[in-house]
């Protein structure tokens, strides 16, 4: 059974390239561009990994992360993407429980290597 990844990102072109790359890794890929819809998906598909953009319209990635923790859903692995590399963002993400924090722009090989590591594949 293939591992399941949910990409929560409002930039459709980043979603497209990431989906393509993860699909080639044999992963089941879902995508959402909105925080509220992402929570529903998490509860429904119970992903093994959530790739979460920190800056989303309406609700930030940090808010979504808190929602996941507050819900009864089993906590998936979380890889947070951000364009802001400030130490305080990284610290906040680590305090909330992010498994990995990556800043944009990242390389394909870098993100794929980290995702493989997180999922143990």
């Amino acid at each position: 059974m293939s591992k399941c990844v949910l990409i929560v990102e409002d930039e459709p072109n980043i979603v497209e390239s990431l989906s393509f790359l993860l699909g080639r890794e044999g992963l089941e890929v879902h995508a959402e561009n909105d925080g509220a819809a992402a929570m529903e998906q998490i509860e429904t598909i119970k992903p093994d990994l959530v790739i979460l953009d920190a800056m989303l319209p309406n609700r930030s990635g940090f808010d979504i992360l808190r929602d996941i923790q507050a819900s009864q859903t089993a906590m998936p692995m979380v890889l947070m993407l951000t364009a802001k590399g400030q130490p305080r963002d990284r610290q906040m993400a680590e305090e909330i429980g992010v498994d990995l924090f990556m800043t944009k722009p990242f390389s394909n090989s870098e993100i794929i290597t980290e995702i493989r590591r997180l999922l143990g594949i």
Binding site: I14, S17, L21, A83, K104, P105, N108
Partner: peptide, 18 residues
Amino acid sequence: SLHSMLSNITAIRSTSNI
């Protein structure tokens, strides 16, 4: 603006690499 530009660069970099 900077967030938007970094997202543009990420998409270009990832896609061109593919």
